[in-house]
Amino acid sequence: MHVATTTTNRDSEPETVRFAPSPNGLLHLGHARSALLNWRFAKACDGRFLLRIEDIDTTRARPEFERAISEDLNWLGIVWPEPPRRQSEHFADYSEALAELRRLDLVYPAFMSRAEAASHIREAEAGGRIWRRDPDGAPHYPRQDRNLGETERKRRIHRGDPHTWRLDMQAALKGLQANLTWQETGTGPAGETGRITADPGVWGDVVLARRDVPSSYHLAVTVDDALQQITTVIRGHDLFAATSVHRLLQTLLGLPAPTYLHHDLVRDETGRKLSKSDGDVSLASLRQKGVRPEVIARMAGLS
């Protein structure tokens, strides 16, 4: 795979969408909404629906959760070409993309632990400095490692210092020839639709790989969407802001840009979005209670 020179003639492709859950818990109504929207979109345009298993975090991924994903989707009437793409089987693709970004001198090894970075930021804020935060509320990574010389970087890597690989956002943005945009066909809470201007700089120097895992979500999803020839990405509005990072990576790696549709989230009675980690009611438990698939669609906000 020649990531940096990948091009695709979108006009000749069938519409292709994907549902990409992580096998680290049971699916809930929010997942049902996203899966059904993708499935209905594919059927309406005689396109393709693909299942992707996003299991780069091998410490949390479980075979039983992947089996449960298949059972839930089949119960909803959704089918897909087998086998699904499992990210854990394609680390070489992500390593190749990272190597290209390293060749372009757009990534750097970051040696600060979370505790060290947090301590540095606390000290800076205590001294009156306003520290930037990303759209998820996490503080931007300090600049110290970005400014290390190449000799020092190699020395620390050689002696085995733990590190991640981060995108040098400043360098990446400096090389752009034009403003980044994407085509949005969803109708989010703020009415976002049409041609959206991307603003990846608000994320700071995002992690692209770790020493034990050669990819992050941002890098893997960008590479996967290109390799699977995804034409329309249909996903929850909680990932709307992250699209700016994905558009930047697509541009840096010479990958095609899909159309995006970010849909409203399913929320509980307090307005909180549903989450696996919070133990929200799973599709499996609803199925066991005798709830029918068509009722699940209505519960997920679909007619």
Rank of each mutant, 00 (worst) to 15 (best):
P135G: 10
D136E: 13
D136K: 08
D136G: 09
G137K: 09
G137Y: 04
P139H: 09
P139C: 10
H140K: 04
H140V: 01
Y141G: 05
P142E: 09
P142W: 04
R143L: 14
Q144G: 12
D145S: 02
R146S: 04
R146V: 05
R146C: 01
R146E: 03
N147C: 11
L148Y: 07
L148I: 01
G149I: 05
G149Q: 04
E150S: 11
E150W: 06
E150P: 01
E150L: 13
T151M: 06
E152N: 01
E152I: 06
E152M: 02
R153D: 01
K154V: 08
R155A: 15
R155E: 15
R155H: 12
R156A: 05
I157K: 03
H158C: 09
H158G: 05
R159S: 10
G160M: 08
D161I: 04
D161R: 09
P162I: 11
P162H: 02
H163T: 02
H163I: 10
T164S: 14
T164E: 05
W165S: 00
R166N: 04
R166H: 02
R166I: 00
R166E: 03
M169Y: 03
M169I: 12
Q170I: 13
A171C: 06
A171W: 11
A171E: 10
A171L: 13
A172F: 07
A172Y: 11
A172N: 04
A172R: 01
A172L: 02
A172C: 04
A172K: 07
L173D: 10
K174T: 14
G175W: 12
G175Q: 15
G175C: 04
L176E: 00
L176Y: 00
Q177S: 13
Q177G: 15
Q177H: 13
A178I: 07
N179R: 15
L180A: 05
T181M: 07
